[in-house]
């Protein structure tokens, strides 16, 4: 019986990943990089500055005040 298209796509990817040589090192670098970016840099060093406000209207009022005050 012929394999379903879904199974063939999965096999295509699995076989591709299995046969990688230099690609394994590159994937490791990508994963480490993404981990550093999203789980260290984003969380500890780059929180959303306006994220301290819960509601959009609070963010809006904060930015409004900033824009008005800085022009003085």
């Amino acid at each position: 019986m012929e394999r379903s298209i879904f199974k063939r796509i999965i096999d295509f990817y699995l076989e591709g990943f299995r046969n990688m040589t230099i690609g394994k090192t590159l994937w490791l670098i990508i994963l480490v990089k993404l981990f550093i970016m999203f789980f260290i840099l984003k969380i500890f060093f780059f929180p959303s500055y306006l994220g301290k406000f819960e509601k959009p209207v609070e963010k809006q009022e904060y930015v409004l005040n900033e824009l008005i005050q800085r022009a003085k």
């Binding site: 970016m37 780059f46 930015v63 824009l67």
Partner: peptide, 18 residues
């Protein structure tokens, strides 16, 4: 390039909102 977007949200928040 995603780091640039992090910087927008943190360092340039007035700009990001605007």
């Amino acid at each position: 390039g995603l780091i640039l977007e992090f910087e927008f949200g943190t360092n340039w928040s007035n700009y990001s909102w605007f």
